[in-house]
């Protein structure tokens, strides 16, 4: 499991019923099921990742979350996870509304486009930044909706009756960031994991 997934998992209470949107090969759900007694359900659009999740024994629905979550009833999960997926959906605001409709809580992780390295590369290099947290060239990146931590906070303010209840910040490697980062996360954090409720 990636370090940022460990940070995310730490925000999920034991025994939760978890829906993971963009679950990939199901590594996070498998971890939650084995170590935290969670029950898990995944949603994944990629066929190869779908097969990998099935091979792990993860129940997974193949669907494109940009079309909403019509297969899932209101508040039918304790936690809905959107792990490193928000930036690759076409309609982030619709997806966030669906996350908070289906889950009692939402947990969202995403790369921060406001990180100082990104800003410097764009400012001085004049080209779309490639960093540890954003490793792809602009023309091949699955990340089509870049946002900063401040942008996400604004989205939550605009969309929700719901709000951010817990904040964790990530360094470039995806580990939990130190104290200095927390003071100016929009500049210093390479990514964020937010719990919403």
């Amino acid at each position: 499991m990636r370090p940022d997934q460990d940070v995310l998992a730490s925000l999920i209470p034991e025994g939760s019923r978890v829906l993971d949107l963009g679950c990939g090969d199901g590594a996070l759900l498998k971890h939650l099921m084995e170590t935290k007694g969670c029950s898990g359900q995944g949603v994944e659009v990629s066929t190869e990742a779908f097969h990998a999740a099935v091979a792990r024994g993860i129940p997974v629905v193949q669907a494109d979350i940009d079309a909403g979550l019509p297969d899932f009833a209101d508040r039918s999960f304790d936690v809905v996870v959107l792990s490193q997926t928000l930036q690759s959906v076409y309609r982030p605001n619709l997806v966030m509304r669906e996350v908070m409709r289906v889950g009692r809580r939402g947990i969202v992780s995403f790369p921060n486009f406001g990180h100082w390295q990104v800003r410097v590369k764009l400012l001085l290099g004049g080209r779309m930044p490639v960093t540890k947290a954003l490793p792809n060239e602009w023309h091949e990146t699955p990340n089509i909706r870049h946002c900063t931590i401040s942008d996400f906070e604004r989205l939550v303010m605009r969309e929700g009756p719901w709000q951010i209840t817990e904040r964790r910040y990530l360094d470039g490697a995806g580990n939990a960031a130190n104290g200095l980062t927390k003071r100016a996360p929009n500049l210093l954090a390479a990514g964020a994991v937010f719990a919403l409720g």
Partner: peptide
Amino acid sequence: SREIVRVLAAHQVPVTFRE
């Protein structure tokens, strides 16, 4: 099929689905 998936998932029954 999606209706079956919807009802099962709403009742916490583990379900895998593909079209």
